[in-house]
Amino acid sequence: MENVSLPIIDFAALSGAPEARRQMLARLGQAAREVGFFYLTGHGLSEADQKATLGLAARFFALPEQEKRSVQMVHSPHFRGYNQVGAELTRARPDRREQFDIMGEETAIGAYALHQPWQRLTGPNQWPAALPEMKTHLLDWQERLTDITLGLLSAFAEVLEQPADVFDASIRGAPYQHMKLIHYPGREAGSSDQGVGAHKDPGYLTLVMQDNQSGLEVETANGWISAPPLAGALVVNIGELLELASNGYLKATLHRVVSPPPGVSRLSCAFFMAARLDATVPLLSLSPELAAQAQGPESDPTNPLFYQVGENVLKGRLRSHPDVAARHYGQPDGAAQGIRDKAQEPIPA
């Protein structure tokens, strides 16, 4: 294992003795403010359980191509299911990874009740018939990861000197959940090394579980650095919604994955937690001291940020999966008309 280059946060200490908790909250705030990424230990997920989840991922990706294609994402207007290598785009370039995406297990909203394009994100997952145990295991795992992110979100409320329930209105009922199992094949001669292109995540928080192979990289003021696996730890990063809520005090950071070398593969499990799709991101009123350090969310004309959560999530899904966009949203360029119109509106000051 390489030397770790990101801060390490002990989740258990955030609910421990007062002094240890105070010190860990200070470290958490510094990590989220300066880097936007950190390792999380003390989260309660055993290494054995983590290996079992990655082992299930390995079994899925080893299935015959026909079995995997039976649950292709293009069949789902809710963006759930399997994608083969090259099917997902980042900044209009294909990523060299295959993956299996799930979200909350839900009932699709009837056509009579659909008023916004993003409401179509709600719906059931697809599950491979060849691995019936996947449904129970992954839905349970997703709930365990959700609990961790909710604990972190509560800690960030304290870091931002806000009431403990400041995010409750945006997650009440259930936050938006999105989890993916990912397989990165080794590079081939002449192929791109873009496992995943440079991007930011659209939610509140992201948790990443890695196997023993490096590949994740984070942009810093000193250039790109590696975030190699740390035994038992999760990698956590700040999403665009927390950057928006804190007016840029917390940092959503560009990151990417470089494909492993020839003959080597990499497995990971990424979990993205956002506010409810029908929620609006709260713009927090920071203390004068914190507000003086908040420089506003970064503005990228090619990647507009929306305070309405469903719009922000759907924007990313349409852009990344043009095949699903074309089949189910009638937009081969990956942008529903409502999203295109909204992109012209500036983020409120």
Rank of each mutant, 00 (worst) to 15 (best):
W224I: 15
V264Q: 09
L250H: 04
E219M: 11
N222H: 11
E217T: 06
G239F: 00
A233Q: 05
G239P: 02
I225G: 00
G232Q: 00
L230M: 11
L250V: 03
R256G: 02
L234T: 00
V257I: 12
N212Y: 10
V258G: 04
S214Y: 07
P260V: 07
A252V: 12
P228R: 01
G239S: 08
E219K: 01
Q213Y: 13
N222D: 15
A221G: 14
E219L: 12
A245K: 06
A233W: 12
S259G: 13
L242S: 07
V218T: 14
L234D: 04
A231T: 09
A231P: 09
V236A: 11
N222T: 15
G223I: 13
V257R: 02
N237S: 07
G263A: 05
T220Q: 10
L250W: 03
P262Q: 13
V264K: 13
G248E: 00
L250R: 06
Q213E: 15
G239M: 04
L244R: 02
W224D: 15
L244D: 04
V235F: 05
T220P: 14
S226D: 14
G215L: 05
G239W: 01
A221R: 07
S259R: 06
I225T: 01
L244V: 14
P261S: 15
W224K: 15
E240F: 05
A221E: 13
S214K: 15
P262Y: 07
P261F: 08
P261I: 08
V236W: 00
A252Q: 10
N247I: 02
P262G: 11
L242Q: 02
G215C: 08
L244E: 12
P261C: 11
P229F: 03
L242V: 13
P228E: 04
K251Q: 09
A252I: 09
A252C: 09
W224E: 07
H255W: 03
V257W: 03
V264M: 14
Q213D: 10
I238W: 08
A227R: 11
N247R: 13
A233C: 13
K251T: 14
E217P: 03
R256N: 10
Q213K: 12
V257E: 10
E217V: 02
W224Y: 12
E240W: 10
V258T: 14
V236C: 07
P229K: 03
G248H: 04
N247Y: 10
L230T: 05
P228V: 06
A227K: 05
V235A: 04
S226K: 14
K251G: 05
P228K: 07
L244I: 11
A252R: 01
A231Y: 02
L230V: 13
E240G: 00
T220K: 11
L250E: 09
E219H: 06
